[in-house]
Nucleic acid binder design. Structure first.
Lengths: 195, 195
DNA sequence: GTCTATATAATGATAGAC
DNA sequence: GTCTATCATTATATAGAC
């Protein structure tokens, strides 16, 4: 995990926003240049491989970001229900309460569109989600659930978070996300941690 | 609701597949022409407004399709739990057990990318989902739930279905969708219809 | 590292023959 | 309705000066 210089980090964040808002093909170099304040040529200086290399690095950065802001909470030495609630709130922060979208979800949407560099990305994302699902599952096991039930509960958390994000967009209603996360917190406490 | 001639319907289905697989900007006229077996010029004969007009009609067609295959089940004169299960199975069929994706979700992902014709679409989709959420909600009310609880249950069904679709793609694991729908059916029976 | 200028390919879109 | 041929525009990408 190489540390990212602050200037480069700002650049990466700006680029990520454009890809989230417009998708891979929709994010043209003109858009990316405008958003960063750089010229196209300067972008190619930073990313000689063009959009392909850009998104590869952005995905790695996003995975680290999600790990720090969201899933890291599952490894903390606290009660499992606290870990889960912190994780869910972390995801809410990461998505700005459901208003922002996740780069991983955006780039996974159309695998057939850019097979060349896309396949490696899909594998990376898939593998990372396996890790996160396992961390969630382990958290539920620590709470006393049997392996199979824990795995199902973990699936449900992931489905609900990404589902609420998607549906909030479909319905143009950010509250869909915020109420879904609130309800998820409650349901976890009720179903798995009623002391 | 004007009936669609069979030949046009085949055309529409082929175009829809391309937009689902590649997104709005990723679906170039070259791709669309190849997939339909027509030339670009012929596509412009059918859709003088180009991709903008195309997707507008495809969205309308998709809404009708979803209404027939999925949400129509909620209006049937059966027990509410049967209606709900049929609806969920209808969604599973519509997405080919989670392997296909939904055009509405795909085109809603990047609202900023094509504001011109895009805004009208967003309103259409948003309005349609309001109607569907209401139909779901009414079904839960028929089962004896109070309005607020029924609304929450309806939200949860939509979030789970679209969430499972999204996460199945992220994790490259179609079973995520099929197990999520199975679990949703069970949970509905248990939580809301335990006789 | 940044830029302007430019090369090259692909895009959406049209003209006009059949 | 379908096509080939073509247009103008925009896309990705590079060369080379500062």
């Amino acid at each position: 995990m190489i540390p990212v210089p602050p200037a480069k980090s700002v650049l990466i964040n700006k680029l990520t926003t454009v890809f989230i808002d417009r998708g891979y093909e929709g994010a043209t170099l003109t858009h990316l240049a405008r958003a960063t304040g750089l010229s196209k040529a300067s972008l190619y200086h930073h990313f000689p491989g063009g959009k392909g290399e850009m998104t590869t690095l952005l995905v790695q950065h996003t995975i680290n970001h999600l790990d720090q802001m969201v899933f890291r909470h599952l490894q903390q030495d606290k009660r499992p229900d606290e870990c889960l609630i912190n994780m869910i709130n972390g995801f809410s922060d990461y998505t700005q309460a459901g208003q922002s979208g996740c780069l991983l979800a955006v780039l996974s949407q159309h695998p057939v569109a850019h097979e060349a560099v896309g396949n490696a990305r899909q594998v990376l994302i898939k593998t990372q989600f396996q890790t996160w699902q396992r961390a969630l599952s382990d958290c539920f096991k620590k709470a006393g659930l049997r392996p199979k039930k824990a795995a199902r509960a973990a699936d449900e958390v992931l489905n609900t978070l990404y589902g609420a994000l998607q549906v909030a967009r479909l319905r143009q209603q950010p509250e869909v996300f915020t109420t879904a996360t609130k309800r998820l917190n409650k349901r976890i406490s009720r179903d798995y941690f009623k002391a």
